[in-house]
Design a protein around this nucleic acid. Structure first.
Length: 420
DNA sequence: TCTGGGGTCCTAGGACCC
DNA sequence: TCTGGGGTCCTAGGACCC
């Protein structure tokens, strides 16, 4: 087996730079929703000590002192770059797993090991040329080793491409690779492994598999084999979601039921659009709301409610009306709410649609109305059509004060070429 | 003042059954 | 009174990822 992992460098920052070249060479960070945390950093910002995931207010001093450029996140723009990159990749390989917005695994079993690096460099150059986004590429006999290779490529390689195929090279690299940097070893597991004397990826790969499984479970056992070059994690090309969640923190504390109903309706519309996009139906729905648990001085309230539908659906109107009703049931007045959200549960393919015995006429029309709504929104921009219950003023909506224009998906926000 | 959002998989424990 | 053992299904919670 030969896997490649293609990973975009500082993805969100790179997207911003494509349309705003003045950001090139400068320290730049991109913020999470609500402008809360740092979720992407340019190399320059990393070098200044801005940590991943840090709340903005904690690095305010660095931003001021070093004049770091700060941007709100623009997910519509990033998603559009992501799909362009996926299109490029499909020119090089038929078997692709889109792992996240900025990463993809590719299968290259048919390519000779000697040819990998050259092939990688060509892919990298083409992606840069066609989309403007720099990527790093790692090759390995397993997904975990491709991840390690990608890490090495990003950190040490001039070409941005690394292959870890031969036994000797793999061992040499793993002996210097800290155990906490392995894909799947997080903040809790790393100290436990170190207590057992496992400090490097190599030491993990040489541990007794059965003992490891007993202490940490099957996930870590698979990791051990993956590090040895035995593939346990297959390429998963199509991954329809099993649940779809939509939620946001509010831009300000929310106390009124009316606003919560608006918010949950907006999230329902987003989630249902995704649901139809992956051609699924939901069989259940969970909604939740809570106050700000970081604020110890205010009264706290957390609640959720879950239901199963009698008939699987992807109709925004049906799901919204359930969501609004459920919100009414779990809402209590007198609290300052920070966030609410909704999860569509137990998704199944929509070809399994069961028409209800008692509502045949209506049921057959429902998909059509939703399809038309999706088409219109796709053509004329998000929320050209929406349900009235989602509200107009939406004062509760999150902050995004420094967002760049949606250059690639809105006619009115296209980039403009000027002569200055 | 200011602390994201959306996922996956695994496991332990309870309820229930034979 | 005996209070075993194995199986399934469900759920909540933990850990991790980007």
């Amino acid at each position: 087996m030969t896997f490649a992992l293609v990973d975009c460098n500082n993805f969100f920052v790179s997207c911003e730079r494509v349309f705003n070249p003045k950001l090139e060479g400068k320290p730049v960070v991109v913020l999470s929703n609500n402008d809360g945390c740092v979720v992407a950093r340019s190399n320059e910002a990393k070098a200044l000590g801005v940590a991943m995931g840090v709340p903005l207010f904690k690095v305010e001093h660095l931003i001021e002192r070093f004049n770091i450029q700060v941007l709100s996140s623009n997910y519509v723009l990033y998603a559009s770059f992501s799909s362009r990159i996926a299109t490029c990749l499909s020119r090089f390989c038929e078997n692709i797993e889109i792992y996240s917005i900025d990463e993809a695994f590719l299968n290259f079993d048919t390519l000779k090991p000697e040819a990998l690096i050259e092939h990688g460099i060509e892919m990298r150059n083409k992606i840069k040329q066609w989309t403007g986004i720099p990527v790093s590429i790692g090759f390995g006999p397993t997904k975990t080793l491709a991840k390690v290779a990608n890490h090495i490529a990003k950190k040490y390689s001039h070409t941005g491409v690394t292959a870890l195929i031969s036994q000797e090279k793999r061992e040499a690299v793993l002996k210097k690779f800290p155990v906490e940097e392995i894909w799947g070893i997080g903040r809790k597991l790393a100290p436990k492994l170190k207590q057992l004397g496992i400090n490097t990826a190599y030491e993990l790969s040489q541990y007794a598999p059965k003992l490891l499984r007993k202490t940490f479970g099957v996930v870590i056992e698979k990791m051990l084999y993956e590090l040895q070059g035995v593939s346990c994690l297959p390429l998963e090309e199509v991954m329809p979601r099993k649940n779809i969640q939509s939620s946001r923190s509010f831009g300000r504390p929310v106390t009124e039921l009316q606003e919560l109903k608006e918010a949950i309706s907006v999230y329902a519309a987003t989630a249902c659009e995704k649901l139809r996009g992956q051609k699924s139906l939901a069989q259940g729905l969970c909604i939740y709301l809570h106050t700000n648990h970081y604020k110890e001085t205010i009264a706290q309230y957390v609640n959720q409610k879950m239901i199963s539908f009698s008939q699987a659906t992807n109709d925004t109107r049906v799901i919204t009306s359930y969501a609004v009703e459920m919100m009414q049931e779990i809402y209590l007045s007198g609290y300052e709410y920070k966030k609410c959200g909704l999860i569509l549960l137990d998704l199944i393919p929509d070809r399994l649609r069961q028409t209800d015995l008692f509502s045949q006429g209506l049921a057959t029309h429902m998909p059509l109305v939703m399809n038309i709504m999706d088409e219109i929104n796709k053509k004329y921009g998000r929320e050209t059509l929406s349900l009235a219950v989602t509200g107009i003023r939406r004062e509760w909506q999150m902050r995004a004060e420094k967002r760049s224009p949606r250059y690639t998906t809105r006619w009115d926000e296209l980039a403009v070429a000027t002569a200055d």
